[in-house]
Amino acid sequence: MTFLNELTKGFIKENPIFVIVLGMCPTLAVSTSVNNAIGMGFAATFVLICSNIIISMIKDITPDKIRIPIYIVVIAAFVSIVDMVMAAYTPALHKSLGIFIPLIVVNCIILGRAEAFANRNTVLSSLADGIGMGLGFTFSLIIVATIREILGSGTWLGFKVMPVTYDPMLVAILAPGAFITLGFLMGMMQMMKNKRSR
C-alpha cells in the first residue's frame, strides 16, 4: 500500500512542477516539443531513481555536515553517465537538449528528493519515490510541451495535427510562450485545488 502511495503521489498530489514548483529551468527550456520533453523526462527520471537508491543506501554512513556535496557527487556521476549514453545512442536528441543535460545536476527536484526523502527512508520506498517523482516530472513536461508544440508549430510529436491553413503561433515555442503557458497551467492547478478545498 505505502509503496503504491509513494509511486502515485508524484502525479497530482505532490507533482514536482505544478505543486512543489521545483526544476523550472529544464521545464521551460526543453518543452518546445514533445520529443524533447520525453527525452528530458526520462533522463531526469533515470538520474532521480539511481541517486535516490544510492543515497538511501549510504544514508547511515553519510556525515551530516557534508551531506550536500556527497549528494551532488552521486548525482553528477549519474548525470555524466546519461550524458555519455545519450551522446552515443541518440545524438540528435543530445544536441537539441544541449546544455540542459549536464544541468540535470543542479535540477532542484533531484537534490530536493535526496534531501527531503531518500536520506530518511528505506531503499525500497526511495526507489518508489524516484519512479513516481520522475514520471510525474515527465508527465508535466509532456503537458506543457503538448500545448506549446501544437500552438507553436501545429504538430504533436512531429505529426501534423492542425489543419493546413493554421498559421503557427511562433511565440509559443519562444521563451515568452513558455512562461505564459506555465503561468496559466499553474493558475488552473490552483483553481482546481481551491475548488476541492471549498
Binding site: 515568452p176 510562450g177 512562461f179 505564459i180 503561468g183 499553474m186 490552483q190
Partner: peptide, 23 residues
C-alpha cells in the same frame, strides 16, 4: 488579482511579458 492567479502563476505570466519585451 483573481484569487487563482495570485503568487506563482501571475509571476510566470509577468516573466513571459518581460521576455517578450527583451525579444
Amino acid at each position: 488579482l483573481p484569487v487563482n492567479m495570485k503568487g506563482m502563476p501571475i509571476g510566470l505570466i509577468l516573466a513571459g511579458v518581460m521576455a517578450l519585451a527583451f525579444y
